[in-house]
């Protein structure tokens, strides 16, 4: 298995669109060709070789030294592994359909938006609109898995349709905004207005919450489904420990009935 590494030559001159650096795409090129690949930068573009020193050989794994101004890392990824040492900018893993994207540091806005498959792991914190939707789309994340060790910003899982998001830390306001389905696990504290507009799907967290008026309190329940989910999580790598250990017992809130929804908030014991 060959690994191709991208080491930054220096600080990025501005926001760079790193979407061409996908394993399956690079595997078809020589290192020289890769160094000549243009990346969008501002109104123009810059070639890879101007920004990065390359080492190793193209294969199914790409390692990139991260930078908060490196946008679209792993956007459209369908296979292979991308590992980022450090942070990434906005829209990492957007529209990802397969493969593994590991960000060891933090991610900017809208990481994993419109994801359809694959696994996105973020070692640090994630910004707003994690696992959300593309601008104007009624459907957000359609599949795959997002695992965040730290906390995330507002609107995690907006309009999510399918898949799993697990955030080890706290989530910002409007978590699972207008969620269609899928599961959001919150290891820390859920933020304000969690579940607003949700039509279906599940938000799991620990401890008490004062839900929005659109959520009907369905009391404590024993849910075999939670054990099933926990069993499943135990088989996965990288699930934040705070999201594990569901006992099967939870207080259940149904809503958001202000939008005719029947999703659930599960405040787990």
């Amino acid at each position: 298995m060959s690994v191709l590494s991208f080491r930054l030559k220096g600080p990025l001159p501005g926001r760079v669109d790193a979407s061409p650096l996908l394993p399956h795409r690079l595997a078809a090129l020589t290192v020289t060709e890769i160094a000549a690949l243009p990346l969008r930068l501002g109104r123009g573009h810059v070639v890879v070789g101007e920004l990065f020193d390359l080492s190793g050989g193209p294969g199914d794994t790409v390692e990139i030294e991260g930078d908060g101004r490196l946008d679209f890392v792993g956007a459209g990824q369908s296979s292979g592994t991308i590992r980022i040492a450090g942070a990434v900018g906005h829209r990492a893993g957007t529209g990802m359909s397969g493969g593994v994207l590991v960000v060891e540091g933090s991610a900017g806005l809208a990481a994993g938006a419109a994801m359809r498959g694959g696994v996105l792991t973020i070692g640090g914190d994630a910004g707003n609109e994690l696992g959300g939707a593309l601008p104007g789309e009624r459907t957000g994340m359609m599949g795959g898995r997002i695992l965040v060790r730290g906390s995330c910003g507002d609107r995690v899982g907006e309009r999510m349709r399918r898949g799993l998001i697990a955030v080890g830390g706290d989530t910002g306001a409007y978590a699972a905004l207008h969620m269609n389905a899928g599961s959001l696990l919150i290891g820390g504290r859920p933020g304000a207005a969690t579940g607003h507009g949700m039509r279906n799907g599940t938000i799991l967290f620990r401890g008490e919450i004062d839900p929005l008026p659109g959520f009907a309190d369905c009391g404590l329940n024993q849910l075999p489904f939670l054990s099933l989910l926990d069993n499943h999580l135990s088989e996965l790598d990288g699930v934040p420990p705070a999201c594990r250990g569901l006992t099967g017992r939870a207080r259940r809130w149904l809503g958001d009935r202000g939008f005719g929804g029947r999703g659930e908030l599960l405040s787990c014991l």
Partner: peptide, 22 residues
């Protein structure tokens, strides 16, 4: 405002939101 409007929708549709205030 989002929660207030949602509670209003719920009431207009003939349902009762939970809680005393929004």
């Amino acid at each position: 405002a989002p929660a207030i409007a949602a509670a209003l929708s719920q009431m207009v549709a003939g349902d009762r939101p939970h809680g005393d205030r929004v």
